[in-house]
Simulated assay, not measured.
Amino acid sequence: MTEFVLVAGAWLGSWAWDEVVPELRAAGHGAHALTLSGLADKRGVPAGQRTHVQDIVGEVERLELRDVVLVGHSYAGIPVGQAAERIGDRLAHVVFVDSNVPVDGESFLSAWPSGRAMVEASMAANDGFWAPLTEADCEGQGLTDEQIARFVAGSTPHPGATLSEPAVLARPLGGLPATYIKCLLDGDEPMGEAAELLKSEHWRLVEMDTGHWPMFSQPRELARILLGRAGGAS
């Protein structure tokens, strides 16, 4: 039995996977949606980027999980990628869902120069937090009005320290068994480091014809892709 550990991106918590988890469990696997410190039901808990790495590693160890498929969406790809190398032989596969990937010595903000000023301005106006998106920000991503409303209502401000702390990698990510899911409404191709990593023989690219939040817009299709990675399949 594969154990999926699911981590959503900025502003979101474990609730974002509510329509994916039942699909994974119905197929006979474990599914553990994780809220990172400082977000959703853990709002108010102090958090940096290293805290989020430990959140993930700690959950795997606490539950004594093996044959683990780590799933990181958007921002969460950064802590998930670091956690993947820290859990050793417990790891079966890593899935990056339209996500950032960690770069040793780089932070979320330093690796996104075109967006840095916008995020820092939001943090300056919101006591060090990145303010959640509005309904207008979510348009054009394959979401229904109901899905957008759910996204906006559930989002909480994102702790700024998680965006500015640099990632720490012991070895290149290209050696890990990984799948990168590119959501085409959010750009035709993986950008930057993700594109380089996909040149590795250990990485695979899967495309979804939807927007940046497939756990809302196409949860069954996303679950089907994840199930294809059960047992560490490539």
Rank of each mutant, 00 (worst) to 15 (best):
A149M: 06
A170C: 02
V95N: 11
V95M: 12
W112S: 15
E201K: 12
P157N: 04
A121H: 08
M191W: 00
N126Y: 00
S114V: 13
V94M: 01
R204E: 05
E106V: 04
Y180A: 01
M118K: 13
L185M: 15
V152H: 15
E201N: 06
G192L: 03
G128H: 14
L163A: 12
A131Q: 11
F216R: 09
V103G: 08
E120C: 03
V206Q: 14
D145E: 15
Q141I: 00
G142W: 10
E207Q: 01
G192E: 14
L173R: 00
F216A: 13
S110Y: 03
L169K: 04
S217K: 02
D188F: 01
S114P: 04
L133T: 04
T156K: 05
D188P: 07
V168Q: 07
V95P: 13
S200P: 00
S122W: 06
K199Y: 01
C183G: 03
C138N: 05
G105P: 09
G175I: 09
Y180I: 02
V97H: 02
L91G: 14
F108W: 11
D127W: 08
N126D: 15
M215K: 07
L173N: 08
I148Q: 10
P214F: 04
A117L: 05
T210E: 10
W213M: 14
W203I: 08
S155Y: 08
C183S: 12
V206G: 10
T210G: 12
E207M: 00
L133E: 03
P172W: 09
D137C: 13
V103I: 13
A167H: 04
P177K: 13
G160S: 07
V206C: 11
L163Y: 09
A161H: 03
H202G: 04
G128Q: 14
A195V: 00
R150C: 06
T210L: 09
A125L: 13
G154M: 00
N126G: 01
R171E: 14
K182A: 10
F216D: 02
L198N: 07
W203A: 03
G115F: 08
A121F: 07
S155R: 10
D145W: 10
V152R: 10
E139I: 13
V97M: 07
R204M: 03
W203Q: 00
I148K: 08
L185R: 15
V206D: 09
D137Y: 11
R204G: 06
P102K: 12
W112L: 09
G142V: 12
E165T: 05
L91I: 05
D209V: 09
S99Q: 03
W112K: 07
D98N: 04
V119A: 13
R150G: 08
G142P: 11
A125M: 13
A124F: 10
M123S: 01
T162N: 11
E120M: 10
K199H: 09
L163E: 05
R171F: 06
P132S: 02
V206Y: 07
G128I: 14
V95Q: 13
D98L: 03
F96D: 07
L133R: 09
W112P: 00
P157G: 13
H212E: 14
